[in-house]
Design a protein around this nucleic acid. Structure first.
Lengths: 337, 337
DNA sequence: TTGAAAGCGCTAACAG
DNA sequence: CTGTTAGCGCTTTCAA
């Protein structure tokens, strides 16, 4: 049914090894006769030859594929990242295998990681979901031998790429201030990486800061939207409602905006908002969402470079890379009335 | 470095075949001594044994993975579908390999398909992008032998799952009419599958219908957003602007809404809109977008069932399955002023 | 209850 | 310039 190199060898009257040499591009180097090459090439085309993935993987000990672990792929930040990763990885001759982290799992483990290893990936790019958890066991599994790079979350000793949120958040707060806002709020999951820099920035610029956390019980992952919406409703009903809100992700900002809308509030007329991630999707919100931009391109390029280097043995490289964030000004912040 | 079955066999003092039997769950059936089983299991755990993907794939002739081809993964319809497909496929013990169709390729070919085959998938679920093209060559490649199912686009003779747009579009038009709208517009790419049923429905309900096509030159895929936005601007400036618009996808509806906003127009106050796809993302638009729902769950379940059946030799099954669409009423249609 | 052996499709080292 | 040979890690007869 499926054509193998041996089939071609038989028909061409040469050895299977010769076929392999020609078809894997080593023909020139091995100085195979032009005529033989041509014959084999022709046969290969005619019989729709396609090297067996499993055969190659087995003998090479590599599948030439890289795993990408991330949260809910319906979150624009993750799908935009996955899209970039796919292109970047393919550019280097690898395949990308996606694995979505299952937060609704009963255990707090990352089955996705096991799934990727079972799938035979040569390395993994790990990008935790919105809510981060310790994953000691898997860090151990990797043990520093397996090509691995983590985005945003730094595992001890393993290469990681984290963003410097202070810069972007400073700009965000400054932007709010320039527009006359005095009462700032944080809206989102509990994320110290964002809340601490935000608090610092607020202090620096003399704005008050309140925090509005959305909490999701373990296993209730599916009801995130409802809970976020409910939290937005609560926010809308606040007596001394802040006029400026930093939402911890663009994805949440969508739901937040929708929740405000339910209550008859509008962005930016009633409340000015800045998101986080700088997604393209945010640019199509009504109004276009200003956001702290994560520099996806750079992060992904670094991540892919890092795993590839490890896979190909050219190790070394920095252990921890820091990428700056910056404010992306669109239309969701206006002067306070 | 990596533990193999042979390693375990050596340490356990048994043959590698026995290890394989135990570890692949055939221990009971092959009546291996309980003690032997226990010893092997223990060793496997201790040494972090993980069957080699390539080894298994080679001997089985199957990778137990299914390819999913679709358009831009940043389009909510596609990422919601991919997400479902992933879960559905994993439920059956397969992996999903994503391949995004590259419309910006110079050739009108689907490299994604080749990429999947190179990746050794056992079957393919094909879901064309917004703009569909003939892909004769690949239809030939599949030749009816390779497990394959197409969503929305019916290839000659191959299993396919298409939606019945007439139902949903009738409901959509009826909904517009109930709200007093008389002038209806189609906004989107040229898609006969949607435009024809829409025209029929409009006629039936006595509404006028104008068409506003967004055209993208081949290779200009990257500038879709700008072009859609520009088209929305043009629409906004129309002298006799329709009050009701059917947008060919929720994804486009986002951009359309954003384009109207640029011009100071609001949904639903100035124009009522119904999208297509019924994405969850549409539910977070401001205002929540009414949409013709595609019944993702059902389509994906059918698709996965169909490829799996082919892969596992239980062939047969219907050649062409039709899934009804229906209107999902949210908040983007209001009575005409 | 278990071992020996064959072979999946491919690459690469070693001979010519 | 090309053939032979030896595995890669696993499953699966066939024997014992």
């Amino acid at each position: 049914m499926v054509t193998t190199a041996t089939d071609i060898a038989k028909q061409a009257g040469v050895s299977q090894a010769t076929v392999s040499r020609v078809l894997s591009g080593k023909g020139a180097q091995a100085r195979i006769a032009k005529t033989t090459q041509a014959k084999i090439q022709a046969l290969a085309k005619e019989l729709h030859y396609r090297p067996s993935f499993a055969g190659q993987a087995l003998v090479r000990g590599k599948t030439r594929s890289i795993g990408f672990m991330c949260g809910d792929i319906c979150n624009p930040h993750f799908n935009e990242l996955a899209d970039l990763a796919m292109r970047e990885v393919e550019k280097r001759g690898f395949h990308l295998v996606l694995a979505v982290i299952k937060w609704d799992a009963t255990q707090n483990n990352l089955e996705a990681f096991d799934s990727l290893l079972a799938r035979g990936v040569d390395g993994v790019i790990y990008f935790g979901a919105d809510i981060r958890k310790g994953t000691a066991q898997h860090t151990q599994i990797t043990g520093g031998k397996f090509p691995f790079v983590s985005i945003e979350q730094a595992f001890n000793g393993l290469p990681s790429i984290v963003s410097d949120n202070q810069i972007g958040l400073d700009e965000a707060v400054a932007h709010f201030k320039e527009n006359g806002h005095r009462r700032l709020a944080y809206f989102g999951f509990a994320e110290p990486d964002k809340e601490l820099p935000l608090a610092r920035a607020a202090k620096r610029h003399g704005l008050s800061l309140s925090r509005h956390h959305v909490t999701i019980p373990l296993g209730a992952w599916a009801q995130i939207p409802q809970r976020v919406r409910a939290a937005a409703h609560q926010f809308a009903d606040l007596p001394e409602r802040p006029t400026a809100v930093f939402v911890s992700s663009d994805h949440l900002a969508h739901v937040f905006a929708s929740g405000l809308w339910d209550k008859g509030l509008r962005i930016p007329e009633d409340v000015s908002v800045i998101g986080y991630d700088g997604t393209a999707a945010g640019g199509f919100m009504v109004p276009p969402l200003s956001s702290v931009d994560f520099d996806n391109e750079r992060v992904i390029r670094l991540a892919v470079d890092t795993v590839c280097a490890q896979i190909e043995g050219r190790a070394g490289a920095a252990k921890k890379m820091v990428v700056p964030t910056r404010l992306l000004v669109r239309k969701s912040v206006v002067p306070v009335p």
